[in-house]
Write a protein that binds this DNA or RNA. Sequence first.
DNA 1: ACCGGAAATT
DNA 2: AATTTCCGGT
Length: 417
Amino acid sequence: MQCSCVAEGVPAVPSSYWISGLAFPDWAYKAESSPGSRQIQLWHFILELLQKEEFRHVIAWQQGEYGEFVIKDPDEVARLWGRRKCKPQMNYDKLSRALRYYYNKRILHKTKGKRFTYKFNFSKLIFVNYPLWDLRCPAPPLLLGAASMCRPAMVSTGLQSEFLQNMLFTRRALPDQLACHRGLQEPSGADGTGDKKAVAGGARFGSIPSPCFFGSYCSPGVQDEFPHLAAFPPPRLTPNGSRQLCSPSHCPVPSPPEWPRFSGHVFPHGQAVLPLPEHAQPHGPLGLPKSDALLMGVSFLPPRLQGRAFPGHPLGTVQGAAERLQFLLDVSPPEEEEREDEEGQRRAPSAEHSQEVKPEVELELEGMALGKDTIFLGPGGEGDSPCYPSELRAFAGAAPRLPCLSGFKAAWPLDPT
DNA sequence: ACCGGAAATT
DNA sequence: AATTTCCGGT
């Protein structure tokens, strides 16, 4: 359904996708029947342009203000947008109307007084799977490392909010103001996060972006382009297993020993992905091609986790990484409630459905995955005190509960050695 | 330039 | 639902 005109403008499937490391709430995508046919949305397109230096003269982040960008060449942006959408008649007047529709949705707002200047409400955007960060322009490992360490529970809301934004910014845009250096400020509700309606249609977690959203990840031939995100380790654990926190002013340098090991489907850059049993994606509005090894749908959470887990919620409140991963693999139908054996090594409920899932292997997973449709696989903190990132909680509130998560992707770095 | 209603489009 | 198109008003 792509018109030929897309070829000339911004590539329909951008090659350098910082965005490939991000996922956005459901409302970010059109509710299409066919999961693979979601059309790009304007704000998404804007982010895309903002990411590419070749468009720096056309649109760029406004230094100093988080999320604020300036359209330097309105006509050109409109032209590009029109090309992408195959709307040759597009112009800034129309485009800006579309942007204004974002005001109510809280995706954007206008920076009054500044010409062609808008600002993103990043609190509405959720990141995920940063190991996929960027193909060509590796983000500062420090950021990612820091991020991965700061991310887990117990980090103050303010910092998370900061982090959230930082994650969304390109290192080019704001290379020096990164996660660990910022003080805590801006209580996440400041910029209008107090969404009572979380945007009609709401934040659902039932879907995941179309495979192609991840750019080259969906095409088998380009694996060599995968980023080498040897990058970062999971949060460091202190001897007693508790998570080491990252204070705004101090980000400990990761220690290799605890890097995750995972014997499974591993991509060149260190991403590991687990496929899913077929029966596990019943509700998925987004039936992802089963063949897509990149995606793992977790439709049902074990009863004990239902209502407790939601995106961003560290799954690992239980000791034992293996067991934690099993939570994911244990995508048994709701009715079924098999128990795990004492060893915590449960067999895959439906191994016959998932040839690739090999739960018996030492799934000493210590990695993590964040964000929408994603369960946090971090090492469990001491205690059973789940910490709910405020931004995510807002979404969780919008979504009834999470009886099911369909569409899940886990990624984690592997031992670099 | 910017806003936002209204109707049409996809 | 997310624009696209058109437009009167500030």
